[in-house]
């Protein structure tokens, strides 16, 4: 028991020792805080670059999507569809007798 008390008293410095180490500890805390601030600022900057890069990528993706949308509009234009249907698939325009008007419930269709 006595040994334990002695060990504890060794760990907790007395008032004089505390006074001796106080400026050093304070300085360490200040330095740590300053490093933390710098680290945080660096993180903000690093994330700023990431956001910038991602926003550019997002724009590129949007541009790409738009280009593909325009491409789709171009290849599905009526003139081209008719050309493909007639030239490549050898289809002909529907004649009157070939058209069925489906008007029953649930089967009325717009063409």
């Amino acid at each position: 028991m006595k040994l334990v008390e002695q060990f504890v008293s060794n760990l907790s410095p007395d008032a004089e020792t505390r006074r001796e180490y106080a400026p050093f500890a304070s300085l360490m805390i200040i330095v740590f805080c300053l490093f933390s601030v710098v680290f945080c600022k660096m993180e903000v900057r690093r994330m700023g670059y990431s956001v910038l890069k991602l926003s550019r990528e997002e724009r590129q993706m949007k541009d790409l999507e738009r280009q593909q949308m325009i491409q789709l509009a171009k290849i599905t234009r009526p003139e081209r569809l008719q050309q493909v249907a007639q030239a490549r698939l050898t289809l002909k325009k529907a004649e009157v007798g070939q058209i069925i008007q489906m008007t029953g419930r649930g089967v009325a269709l717009k063409q």
């Binding site: 069925i100 008007t103 089967v107």
Partner: peptide
């Protein structure tokens, strides 16, 4: 199919 649909049109039968 055309002949069937022709007979069904307007009868209310759902094909």
């Amino acid at each position: 199919l055309r002949e069937v649909l022709t007979r069904v049109t307007g009868t209310g039968v759902e094909v």
